[in-house]
Design a protein around this nucleic acid. Structure first.
Length: 273
DNA sequence: AGCTGTACCTGCAGGC
DNA sequence: TGCCTGCAGGTACAGC
């Protein structure tokens, strides 16, 4: 499940491979993944050059030399797979960029939740245009987090962490890890959080996302980077998907609950309700 | 306006 | 064995 560290890792691997490469052709196999831009608009990218690759929140941004952007959101099972030569098309491949040196970049997504946009301006990408700051940005702070949650008085803290308009980049895996690190129960109402707890949460968001980036993200089931490499942060997870196992801090049995429609794993003793 | 619940989609685990 | 059900989760949106 690609969250900020996974998308950052994909962006880094793509940056190594596709920058400066002219697009020879684009093949669209499943137009349903195109959110903005028609099949023909994407096919007409022939001759364009990808001049940079960046990331904002969980959105991957391919910069075209002439000023347009191809934006990709991998959602749950999306992959961007690079290969130096043309490969037989894998199942669930929805779009392919062929480059003039014979390399290819395939958008593959088992569950077809992932989306692509071809836009002149990033403000045209729904979701991307309303993102909050990311915990890995220099401007992010405990004060920023506190101001953001002041607008979400009736929310549980887990829901706030997952809301990309409050703080950008966290998904279910890292939200659970952040709550455990900050010793805060996922069902706490944000209005009851103390200043110390908010500082702990903000610090944990920055530390955990940064650490996960250096470890190439988390591969729980499907995630791989553009070189088909798995991440390694799954070896460092403390609570995600570990319901019934002992808490790494105190040994109590980790429990599972549902918050904002998402499973949440927590330690009933360490995480204050 | 701000919240909750659901749709989207496929693969897989667990029950019988 | 094989079918059926439920669950996994990021985002948008319907409905309260």
């Amino acid at each position: 499940m690609p969250e900020l560290p996974e998308v950052e890792t994909v962006a880094a691997s793509l940056r190594r491979h596709i920058m400066g490469l002219p697009i020879e052709s684009v093949e669209v196999y499943n137009p349903v993944v195109l959110e903005i831009g028609t099949e023909m608009d994407f096919e007409n990218l022939k001759g364009e050059v990808i001049s940079d690759v960046s990331r904002r929140g969980k959105y991957l941004i391919l910069h075209l030399e002439k000023g347009r952007f191809v934006v990709v959101h991998l959602r749950m099972t999306g992959k961007m797979l690079f290969s130096k030569k043309s490969e037989p098309l894998a199942k669930h491949s929805h779009l392919r960029f062929n480059f003039s040196d014979g390399a290819e970049l395939v958008f593959n997504d088992i569950r077809r939740f992932g989306r692509l946009w071809l836009v002149d301006d990033l403000s045209g990408v729904s979701g991307l245009n309303k993102l909050a700051l990311e915990p890995v940005q220099a401007e992010f702070s405990a004060e920023y987090w506190q101001n953001q949650i002041a607008r979400k008085k009736k929310s549980m803290v887990k829901a706030a962490l997952l809301d990309q308009h409050i703080v950008a980049g966290l998904g279910n895996i890292y939200a659970d890890e952040v709550l455990f690190a900050a010793k805060v129960h996922p069902e706490r109402m944000v209005s009851t959080l103390t200043e110390v707890e908010n500082q702990g949460l903000a610090a944990a968001m920055t530390a955990i996302l940064s650490d996960a980036i250096t470890k190439g993200g988390t591969t729980f089931r499907d995630y791989v980077d553009a070189d088909n490499n798995k991440g390694s942060y799954q070896n460092y997870l403390k609570v995600f998907q570990k319901s019934g196992e002992p808490c790494p801090n105190c040994g109590s049995t980790l429990e599972k609950t549902k918050v904002a429609g998402r499973s949440s794993i927590f330690c009933p003793r360490c995480q204050v309700k």
